[in-house]
Amino acid sequence: MHPAYSVILFTTASGAGYGLLALLGLTGMSHGQASSIAFGVAAMIVSLGLITAGLLSSTFHLGHPERAWRALSQWRTSWLSREGVVAVLAFGPALFFGLVWSGLLEAPTLIAPLGALSVVLAVITVFCTGKIYSSLATIRAWNNGLTVPVYLVFGLSTGASLLAALTALFGNLPAFLVYLSCLLLALTLALKLAYWRSIDSAPRTHTIEAATGLGRIGRVSQWEVPHTSANYVQTEMGYAVARKHARKLRRLVVLALCLAIGLMLAALVAPLAAVLAALVALVAAVVERWLFFAEAQHVVTLFYGARAA
C-alpha cells in the first residue's frame, strides 16, 4: 500500500494525542486537578493539538475536504465513519475536561467523570482507527488480530512518553510515570514484534490463480500489463517496499523503541532525557506506521502479477 504521509501523520499524531488524553484523563481521575494551570494548559494543548493536527492532516488526502462532514453519516457500517463520529464526540468532553482539570474552570467534581469520559472516547477513537485497517479483508497484513492492539498501544506509549516529557519540562517527573512509559514502550515493542512475526508467517492464501480463475488450467503469470504506465491501482495499492529496506526499517523501529526506553530510564537521573525519549518514540511510531503501509500487500496486486497475497 502506498504510504501516504498525510495518513501516517494523522494516525501517529492523533494516536499520540489520544494516548496522552487518555493518560491525562486517568491522571485527573486519580489525582484531581493538574499540578499547575500552566502544566495543565500545556498538556492539553499538546494533546488536543496533536489530535487536531492529525484530523486536519487526514483531510489533506481527501479529494473533497469540504465534504468531510459527510463522513459522519455512515457509522452503521463504516469504521471510518465511526472514527469520525467518535472523534467529534470526544472533542467536546476532552476540551471541557482540559478546562476543569487545568483549573481554568473551577469545577473539581467534574474532573473525574469528564476524565473518565475522555479516556473512554480516546480509546474508542483509536480503536476505530485500528479497525478501519484491520477490517479490510483485502490486505492480509492489516486484517490481523494484532492491528488494533498495536494501534492502541502505540497511542498509549507515545502518549505516556509525551506526558513524561511534559512533566519533566515542568520539573515534576514522577518515577511512576517513567516506569509506566517504559512498560508501555516495551509492550509496544513486544506487540509489534509479535505482529511482524504474525504477518511474516501468515500463509498467503489468495493466489493469482484464484484471482484470475485460470488456476483451473494451470499456473498463471502476468504477461502484459493493461497499460504501459502505472495507473492509480498500481501506485496506490501496488506499492511495495524492498524486503531489505523493510528489514532495515524494522530494525530502526526496534532500536528507536529500545532507545526510547533507555532514555526514559535515564530520565530517572536526568529528567529532561524524557523529552528525548518522547521524540524518539514518536520517530519510532512514524517509521512503524510507514512500514505498516509499505509492507502491506493488497490482493489486487495478484492481477498485476503477484503470485500470492
Binding site: 485460470l214 488450467i217 498463471v220 503469470s221 504477461w223 502484459e224 500489463v225 498485476y304
Partner: peptide
C-alpha cells in the same frame, strides 16, 4: 482494463 496472462497447461 485488459490484462494478458500466460497460463501453463
Amino acid at each position: 482494463r485488459i490484462h494478458g496472462y500466460e497460463v501453463e497447461e
